[in-house]
Design a protein around this nucleic acid. Sequence first.
DNA 1: CTGAATCCTTGGCGATACTG
DNA 2: CAGTATCGCCAAGGATTCAG
Lengths: 133, 133
Amino acid sequence: MPAKLILPPVVPGSGHETRCPVRDVLDCIGDRWSLLTLLALADGTLRFTEVKRAIGDISQRMLAQTLRALERDGYVTREVHASVPPKVEYTLTALGESLLTKVTPLIHWANENHGQVRKARKAYVPPQAATAL
Amino acid sequence: MPAKLILPPVVPGSGHETRCPVRDVLDCIGDRWSLLTLLALADGTLRFTEVKRAIGDISQRMLAQTLRALERDGYVTREVHASVPPKVEYTLTALGESLLTKVTPLIHWANENHGQVRKARKAYVPPQAATAL
DNA sequence: CTGAATCCTTGGCGATACTG
DNA sequence: CAGTATCGCCAAGGATTCAG
């Protein structure tokens, strides 16, 4: 298919219904926590607190919010066990796993090329100095 | 290699130097414009204004800022042609192309599964209503 | 344990105007 | 054309508290 993907935004008049698909997924992985949460669930079902621990520096608020969004979009399922103490388990859906498949290579790439990026940053000459030459 | 990728954040004491690689790349694609800009440059060299047009709804400020960040991290090169009117061309580096290779499948996935996501959203029953059962 | 609700700060980002 | 500088808004998100 298309060498030309359509990046542009929302159709001005359309309100909210028709979004560019790229944007729609990007918005999901774009926020700070969604992808990390997805990755945390890659190895299997986890409870709320376990996800929290896996990510490390996410607040309760953000985790709850993120998980809800992922659930809403069909990436994870939420299973409540009525017990004391409460137990809620989160699991990737088929859709979530499918997405994960596409994300994983990116993660590997990140690990492998992280050095390059850091190197580029160190070597970088800000644009001001460049014009001075 | 690792089934266990380390998601966690910054090393507390380390200040800024040692970041989790995953985060470092995610931060790049995480912001609203970096990936879109990368995609815009996928087809070849573009001038500032051309990139702007390709994306559509990005402000000058954000585009300049994004391009600088991408340049800093070694994803794009910036070539200035001293002329009137000025002409500045942006091109993906090998690193940028490499990253793009990993991103493209994700984009395709987005296009193909966008419907699923929208479907899930429509069918979604908020957690309040769920407990009411 | 698993959240929801409230408060408050930060900074991402757009709009506008100005320079080379 | 290709930016930089300044301002101001508003949403993201952290900290804390309350509830089932």
